[in-house]
Amino acid sequence: MNKALRNPLIYVLFILPAFILFLAFFIYPVFTAVNNSFTSWNGISKNVHYIGFDNYVQAFNDLAFWKSVRNNVYFILFSCFIQVPLIIIFSLLIANVKRFKGLYKTAVFMPSIMSTAVIGILWGFIYNPDFGLANEVLGLFGVSPVYWLSDKNWAMISILITNAWQWTGFYIVMVLAAILSIPKELDEAAAIDGATGFQRATKITLPLIMPIVSVVIMLSIAGAMKAADIVLVMTKGGPAGSTDVMATYMIRYAITSFRHGFGNSIAVLIFVFTIIITVLYQVLIAKRTERIEY
């Protein structure tokens, strides 16, 4: 057995199946998308006309495209500055409960395993202007009904809240695992020295879990850039394109309008923008988060 493991061919054979799948389902589609982005093609006919950078020029000159980019930025900002702090707070609270900790972890994780279609329909009932729970609660305070998903001023924030509700529990479990892996001796020593619970959380726990928080932020950014399903289920990009994101903008042209070449150019732009944002985050912020040893 040891002699066989010394043969480099054995390692190649183990890696080869995954590498072939990676080439077939990632590398090849990326290069195909880039190639198609320079064409005027409906995705069906055999006639493919290369038009250079015309698709990209059209996208950059389209105000609807920049609105979709702006909405993706809203997703990122909401995730980083509202969702992530709530994740940390709830993780700290659950980590310090004495009873039913497993129940709490299961409860917050459940939305993450539900279908996005189900969640979109569920929250569609909550946002219903006539009998929805959201307006029923506002009615108790004398607030007039709000048209959550059909009003340009409220549609985007409604989707952001729904998306956060779906994925917050998934990230809480990740952060909670990091908190529970911290040796109890550190917290106990700080408590003996007179540190309050808030001081222990901010001065000990939070710095020690920053590496995993950085991972959560990275995953949130990646998820924000590819967000599409929740928008399609709840508003289909409406009203009047106010909730369109780059992915739904791409789907509208690549599939609905049979402009496959233009749709592929948007897909390439999503890929490029995601790479740029993640690299900037890694260089400017994540790189400063050192691995903690204790």
Rank of each mutant, 00 (worst) to 15 (best):
R200Y: 06
I230T: 09
V231P: 00
K226V: 11
A224S: 15
I209N: 10
G237L: 04
G237S: 05
L232D: 12
L206C: 05
K226A: 05
P207H: 11
L219C: 11
V213I: 15
A189R: 03
A228T: 01
D229E: 15
P207C: 09
G197V: 08
P211L: 11
L208E: 08
T235H: 08
G194P: 03
I204H: 10
Q199E: 15
D244Q: 14
M210C: 02
G194R: 02
G194N: 02
M218N: 10
T205C: 03
A190E: 05
M218W: 00
L206T: 13
A189I: 01
M234D: 06
A228R: 08
K236Q: 15
G241Q: 12
V231R: 01
K203R: 15
T243P: 07
T235W: 07
I212M: 14
M234P: 04
L232I: 12
G194W: 05
G238K: 07
I230P: 01
L208S: 12
A227G: 00
M210Q: 14
L219Y: 06
R200L: 05
G238V: 09
A195G: 01
G223Y: 00
G237C: 04
I212A: 03
T235S: 10
T202Y: 13
A227D: 05
P239A: 09
L219T: 02
I217P: 01
T202M: 13
G241R: 11
V215N: 11
V213G: 05
A190V: 03
A201G: 09
A224I: 00
K226E: 12
V216D: 08
I221Y: 02
G237R: 08
I204M: 08
I204E: 11
G223F: 00
P239Y: 09
I192P: 06
S242N: 13
I192K: 04
T202L: 12
T243Q: 10
R200G: 04
I212V: 15
M225N: 05
P239T: 11
Q199H: 08
T196F: 03
A190N: 04
S220H: 00
P207A: 09
A224N: 02
V213Y: 08
L219K: 02
I217F: 01
A201Y: 06
S214C: 14
L219I: 11
L206M: 14
V216Q: 06
V213F: 06
M225P: 02
A190I: 02
L232T: 12
G238S: 09
R200D: 07
G238W: 09
T196S: 15
D244Y: 13
V231I: 15
A222I: 15
L206E: 12
A227W: 00
A195K: 06
Q199V: 08
T196W: 01
L232N: 13
R200S: 10
A189S: 15
V215A: 14
P239I: 11
G237M: 06
I221E: 01
D193E: 14
R200N: 05
A240P: 00
V216T: 14
V231A: 02
D244L: 12
M225I: 01
V231L: 07
M234W: 05
P239W: 10
V216W: 03
A191D: 11
Q199L: 07
